[in-house]
């Protein structure tokens, strides 16, 4: 476990594997369930995995509240570690942070791989771009987040109190950073043209939190956007289809658009920018 400090905020991170740098920004829920995926990425990459402030049990300063703050923190981390040509991977909340980073400064970024990112609201004021998880029951949340919850969703009956506390704390900090406006930055859509990097969008077909249709609209707004939908996955394909998800990201890195279409066995549809199927 390493520690990095910037702007009076400390962030802990771990480093896995070796190779060209990959920064993985975790989603709002179930951090511990991303280990397999991180290991798969680390087979070919040096993977840096920060824990967002607050999620680690150390409350950030009370004015460290915005996803913008997280974006600046991780841009600083990349500079401090002197990483170049970074493959930036973000899942859900982590994908939102990655987009906020990319609209600000892409000088050290090579590509983006975003797994069902939140952060960009595209629907009208009476439409929910993102299901209101805070108003759903546990059963509804499991169903929204997983294609096969019985197999993949954490089973609370088999977790100890410390693990349950971590899950509750993850929700607390999801609220801390994303309660209102709900899980998005109202002005982010305006600046997405600045993300002029190859950007793989990965979406689980069964995502009930941020529906795949949102990914299709988002892909059109990203200059290098490429949407790939995964069967047998909900909002967290890196948990339910970890090997396929890691392969897509690593192959996309090698040869962006060819990679997506080469995964025909996994992918029901691959949608390049402006060509939504």
């Amino acid at each position: 476990m390493e520690t990095f400090e910037s702007g009076g905020v400390a962030v802990t991170y771990t480093v896995h594997g070796s190779g060209p740098p990959l920064l993985f920004l975790h989603p709002e829920h179930f951090f511990a369930w991303n280990r397999t995926f991180v290991g798969q990425l680390a087979a070919k990459r040096q993977v840096i995995v920060p824990r967002h402030p607050g999620f680690d049990g150390k409350p950030p300063p009370p004015d460290f509240r915005r996803v913008d703050d997280l974006a600046y923190l991780y841009l600083d981390l990349i500079e401090r570690l002197d990483l170049r040509d970074v493959l930036l991977v973000g899942a859900s909340l982590g994908g939102w942070i990655a987009l906020e980073m990319a609209v600000r400064d892409r000088s050290r970024l090579a590509r983006l791989a975003l797994i069902a990112p939140t952060g960009v609201k595209l629907g009208g004021r009476e439409e929910r771009d993102f299901a209101d998880l805070f108003a759903l029951s546990e059963a509804e949340i499991r169903k929204a987040l997983f294609a096969d919850p019985d197999r993949w969703a954490p089973d609370y009956a088999n977790l100890d109190d410390a693990e349950m506390e971590t899950i509750a704390r993850e929700r607390q900090y999801a609220a801390w950073y994303g309660w209102k406006p709900y899980m998005h930055n109202p002005v982010l859509a305006r600046w997405l043209h600045r993300v002029d990097l190859p950007t793989l969008l990965l979406w689980g077909e069964a995502d009930g939190y941020v529906p795949p249709a949102h990914g299709e609209r988002l892909a059109r707004l990203l200059p290098g956007g490429w949407l790939h939908r995964l069967a047998g996955a909900g909002h967290y394909p890196q948990i339910e289809q970890s090997a396929a998800t890691a392969d897509l990201i690593l192959n996309f890195d090698a040869a962006p658009r060819a990679a997506a279409v080469s995964q025909g066995g996994v992918s029901p549809s691959s949608v390049p920018r402006g060509a939504v199927s």
Partner: peptide, 22 residues
């Protein structure tokens, strides 16, 4: 009242809130 409204995230400390999720 449904439990998601009884235990909104961060209202009570994470320890008891986590146990209430069960």
């Amino acid at each position: 009242v449904a439990s998601q409204f009884m235990f909104p995230p961060g209202y009570a400390p994470a320890g008891p809130t986590g146990q209430a999720l069960r």
